[in-house]
Design a protein around this nucleic acid. Structure first.
Length: 634
RNA sequence: GCUACUGUGGCUCAAUGGCAGAGCAGCUCACUCGUAAUGAGCAGGUUGUCGGUUCGAUUCCGACCAGUAGCUCCA
């Protein structure tokens, strides 16, 4: 028998050729076998049942590994399907993969599933776990496969799409068999802790022309504590829902009268304006000139830009004096009009034009979501016109600006570079040059980044920033897109050192993305407890009784004089009540004033974070607060 | 837009084919208070809209509107 040598975390062991990952794991320890989800041989992920035929480094993957999780959740989805076939005979199974967090199974059934069914299904799943059935793999040729799946119409369709002549793999656990490429765990008993989370509609093969199936989602973990942690995280996310906090804190409102058109309330405006003030200062420092272009522009402009042909279904249009007009869904055409109005010398480049542009887009009604997905929003847009050899520096500068602005909120982010797609426009050399410039800028920034091959826009490559919030969720906000097409369409030019006309390159970029969405992210990131510099109310003065009203008013006046957004709570309520109200409103500082404070000229300071901080001189507090605001501490 | 679900005072929720109820918030009065809810009282609703069934509909049915989850979309 031929032998192979496997490196197991430095421990070199010899096995017969064709040994499986499961056998190796079992050889190391029964515990490891139970925890094993998959294996990785020299960076290649494998099922535990795959024969290993060459020497190399072998990792036994558990739930802690992403690929291990994938196998774990994949088996969980089979567990769900197994239970469903037991409970609902005749159910048609479509697909059941693992996803980023958990798994789902798409089914077609006469029974309409609701969360009320979950109990019953989970009970059946638990039974199957308890039975601890072996999960076995086998392969069939196409004809046998079709026979086996003859009563499963979706599976038959999948089988027919598989390449001719290839062996088709199946996984079987007891009385349940599913067409599946794997990988899977070895026994149903390894799925320790699970929960079905939701049921929704989903199109067969993700195509809206096809039948809508029912998708049942679930999540599973090898430990009950991990499941609880996960469920708690979901609960925390619910508590931070910006739609709820937005109303409670008086930030914004959505009315039935304007679905997707948010209304900003006074507190929301304070937040928004502070954000914008910061944005303006940063942009001025970074050499941008601000403009404002109209919301409504005529059809011919949108024909020139290409939006009339390519973006029409998302645009609101109107007729003025019998001429077609469109409400802008993007700001670039306006910026191009401004650029083209004057003759530009190469000495004037790069030209950085920024605009807080209110755009309208007709998003599908089902896609609307609080401030995250709206039909009217303000982009913190900018367009930079430059020569090819300025690309790298300009991109580098934008990355720096994003880094600086996100830093004010303690937001971490991931970078992605998206390169030439298949349906690209323009010259390949141009693309290669541009991609190299973007990548150089990224390298120069010293930030880590990921490359998304072929994910760029047809008009140019781009860099996306994905914010990670305090709950570890990811949001795409800033994006930098290179564009060779619009300058072409608008015949944009500058005069070069040679006295000839040349075409500049343009970049579109946003940093916050949409102000509305960014505010939603901030609300959830901070759970409504904003950094002091953007808090709608920065300090509330709480007199203990009526006798201290006058002093409280003096304190408030002093705060306001120093530029602090302060209020007095004069209501005839107990101090505890007022403190509670201020805490719920997430006011950063509460200044409690009573007899003692009045006599000493102090305030009793309470922070929303740390609670009672004791007495402090008013001027000391004001100086500290001013510093905190100025430094944008959080 | 599609599928499923939901729609009762400002908010959270209860009830019912037969006079729609509570807590919080609001308003009024009393209390003048030391670090997360003082007490009492008052007011607030054509039960999302329109139509149908019925002696009677907020409840049952239909359409529409809006929302929720997901799908799709996001050059």
């Amino acid at each position: 028998m031929q032998k192979i040598k496997l490196d197991l975390r430095g421990d070199i062991r010899e096995y017969n050729i064709g040994v499986t990952g499961a056998e190796v794991a079992g050889d190391i320890s029964p515990g490891l076998l139970r925890a094993a989800c998959a294996v990785r041989l020299e960076k290649e992920n494998k099922d535990l049942r795959d024969p290993i035929t060459s020497d190399g480094k072998l990792e036994i993957l558990t739930f802690d590994d992403d690929f291990g999780k994938h196998a774990y959740w994949h088996s969980s989805s089979h567990l769900l399907a197994h239970a469903l076939t037991r409970l609902y005979p005749g159910i048609q199974l479509a697909i059941g993969p693992s996803i980023d967090a958990g798994f789902y199974y798409d089914v077609d059934s006469e029974h309409t599933f609701t969360p009320d069914d979950f109990d019953l299904i989970e009970k059946e799943m638990k039974k199957i776990v308890k039975e601890n059935i072996d999960i076995e793999r086998f392969s069939l040729d196409r004809k046998q496969a079709e026979e086996l799946m003859s009563d499963q119409t979706y599976k038959l369709e999948l089988i027919r799409d598989l390449p001719e002549g290839e062996k088709i793999s199946f996984y079987k656990q007891g009385d349940f068999t599913d067409l599946c490429a794997g990988p899977h765990l070895m026994k149903t008993g390894e799925i320790k802790s699970f929960k079905l989370t939701s049921v929704t509609g989903a199109y067969w093969r993700g195509n809206s022309e096809n039948k809508m199936l029912q998708r049942i989602y679930g999540i599973s973990f090898p430990k009950a504590s991990l499941l609880n942690e996960h469920l708690e995280m979901i609960e925390e996310a619910k508590r931070r829902d910006h739609r709820v906090l937005g109303r409670e804190l008086g930030l914004f409102e959505l009315f039935e009268e304007g679905p997707g058109f948010p209304v900003f309330l006074p507190n929301g405006m304070i937040l928004r304006n502070n954000l914008i003030d910061m944005w303006r200062i940063e942009h001025e420092k970074a050499g941008y000139k601000e403009i404002s272009t109209p919301t409504i522009l005529n059809r011919s402009l949108w024909e020139t830009s290409g939006h009339w042909d390519h973006y029409r279904s998302n645009m609101y249009t109107t007729v003025i004096d019998e001429e077609d007009y469109a409400i802008k869904p993007m700001n670039c055409p306006g910026a191009l009009l401004v650029y083209n109005k004057t003759m530009t010398s190469y000495r004037d480049l790069p030209k950085r034009i920024c605009e807080l542009g209110l755009v309208h887009r007709h998003e599908l009604s089902g896609a609307l979501h609080g401030l995250m997905r709206v039909r009217a929003f303000t982009q913190d847009d900018a367009h930079i016109f430059m020569t090819e050899d300025q690309i790298e520096d300009e991109i580098f500068n934008v990355i720096g600006l994003v880094d600086r602005i996100y830093g004010y909120f303690g937001l971490e982010y991931d970078l992605e570079l998206s390169t030439r797609p298949e349906n690209f426009l323009g010259e390949i050399e141009q693309w290669n040059m541009a991609e190299a410039a973007l990548e150089n800028a990224l390298k120069k920034s010293g930030k880590k980044y990921r490359i998304n091959e072929g994910d760029g826009a047809f008009y140019g490559p781009k860099i996306d920033f994905h914010i990670r919030d305090s709950l570890g969720r990811s949001w795409q906000c800033a994006t930098i897109q290179l564009d060779y097409q619009l300058p072409e369409r608008f015949e944009t030019e500058y005069i070069g050192p040679d006295g000839e006309r040349h075409r500049p390159i343009m970049i579109h970029r946003v940093i916050l993305g949409a102000i509305e969405r960014f505010i939603a992210i901030l609300i959830e990131h901070f759970a409504g407890a904003f950094p002091v510099w953007i808090s709608p109310v920065q300090a509330v003065v709480i007199p203990i009784s009526e006798k201290h009203r006058e002093y409280a008013a003096e304190v408030e006046k002093e705060l306001v004089k120093n530029g602090v957004r302060a209020e007095c709570d004069f209501r005839d309520e107990k101090m505890g009540y007022k403190i509670r109200q201020a805490q719920l409103q997430k006011v950063p500082y509460m200044l409690i004033v009573g007899q003692k404070e009045m006599e000493d000229g102090t305030i009793s300071l309470r922070s929303r974070k740390e609670g009672d901080l004791g007495a402090e001189k008013l001027d000391v507090f004001i100086e500290n607060l001013k510093r905190e605001i100025k430094n944008k501490e959080f």
